[in-house]
């Protein structure tokens, strides 16, 4: 065991893992975290807590993570972007997060702040996501800070994750980047939302052929669609996301009132299909401001009960 988190235990035991996403509020209200956490409790192995996603200020991922730990609700995966912190702040936050009982960290570059709600902010990007993975691994395994100084007892024991967008172009480099993330020390991978299972399976085959599926645990991303409009937006505007036309048609045909239910049905089908793809060790359900729909999707996909390890 590298960190001994529940997520690590589930994955290393060979169980098919389920994670979901929890977006912290744009306020200091802990109740929002508690309520969202309780919705997901028992339905997932761990919950990603986003870090100022889309560069919009929200409650800190570490703080929200500490709340769910303290309340004993669900295990958090703290997301950490390199957009807002330099290596000094990141390492300090990592020590603090580990001290607060957080055991998983997903390393990301983060969306550029120009599209967020503080576009006039100063850019940081001292590190990129791959370098962040390497830094956390060195803190955990080599017991050193990035500068080379030794970390005294206790070192941060984190299960280290990274993201993968297999279908963004240039596609050829995406497997190379995945290999770099794994070489840097990514214990698990959560992918961008997948709709085009065939293309995803092709990328997975390349990754598995390189031995990456043995060296890391890959969780396929699921973003439940709420409407045909959302599907069209994702198709057009989100890099690496390709929503097939027939899926958009299904949502349109369902009509406005039934589109959400159809979207959830599609999500369940995608989970079942992705489960069959070689190398997929779990799913990561990103139900954006739709956390209450995750339990139903997990249940219908036949992923209950969650293992208790």
């Amino acid at each position: 065991m590298k960190a001994g988190s529940n997520l690590e235990k589930v994955l290393s035991s060979g169980e098919f893992a389920v994670t979901a996403e929890l977006g912290p509020p744009k306020s200091a209200d802990p109740q929002v975290i508690i309520e969202k956490g309780n919705i997901l409790k028992g339905y997932v192995d761990a919950v990603n807590i986003t870090d100022n996603q889309t560069a919009i200020v929200r409650m800190a991922s570490i703080a929200a993570g500490a709340i769910v730990v303290k309340e004993g609700i669900v295990e958090p995966v703290m997301q950490m972007v390199t957009r807002d912190r330099n290596r000094i702040a990141i390492q300090s936050d990592i020590l603090g997060a580990a001290a607060l009982g957080i055991k998983n960290c997903l390393c990301l570059a983060g969306d550029h702040h120009s599209s967020g709600n503080h576009p006039s902010a100063k850019n940081v990007y001292d590190l990129d996501s791959i370098q962040l993975v390497a830094m956390l691994k060195a803190m955990r395994d080599d017991k050193v800070f990035q500068c080379g100084e030794e970390i005294e007892e206790v070192q941060p024991q984190l299960f280290i994750g990274a993201a993968w967008t297999p279908l963004a172009d240039p596609k050829e480099i995406r497997v190379i980047r995945l290999a770099k993330k794994v070489a840097a020390g990514a214990d698990f991978i959560q992918t961008q939302g997948v709709y085009d299972v065939k293309s995803f399976a092709e990328s997975m085959k390349k990754a598995c052929d390189m031995g990456l599926c043995e060296d890391t645990y890959i969780l396929a991303g699921i973003i439940p669609l709420k409407s045909a409009g959302m599907a069209t937006y994702m198709q057009k505007s989100v890099p690496g996301v390709n929503v097939p036309d027939e899926m958009i048609k299904r949502l349109k045909d369902a009509g406005r009132k039934r589109a959400g239910a159809e979207g959830r049905k599609i999500a369940v089908e995608l989970i079942q299909q992705l489960r069959e793809v070689e190398g997929v060790r779990g799913v990561h359900i990103m139900a954006i401001e739709w956390e209450e729909r995750v339990p139903g999707i997990v249940e219908k996909a036949g992923l209950l009960p969650r293992p208790s390890l």
């Binding site: 957009r83 570059a109 969306d111 550029h112 120009s114 850019n123 990007y125 990129d128 996501s129 791959i130 370098q131 993201a163 993968w164 967008t165 963004a168 172009d169 240039p170 480099i173 980047r177 770099k180 961008q192 890099p239 690496g240």
Partner: peptide, 16 residues
């Protein structure tokens, strides 16, 4: 690179 990253491209690259 807008993020000055050294191991790109990030997941935000689309159609070049």
């Amino acid at each position: 690179c807008s993020k000055s990253i050294l191991n790109g491209p990030c997941g935000g690259s689309d159609g070049g």
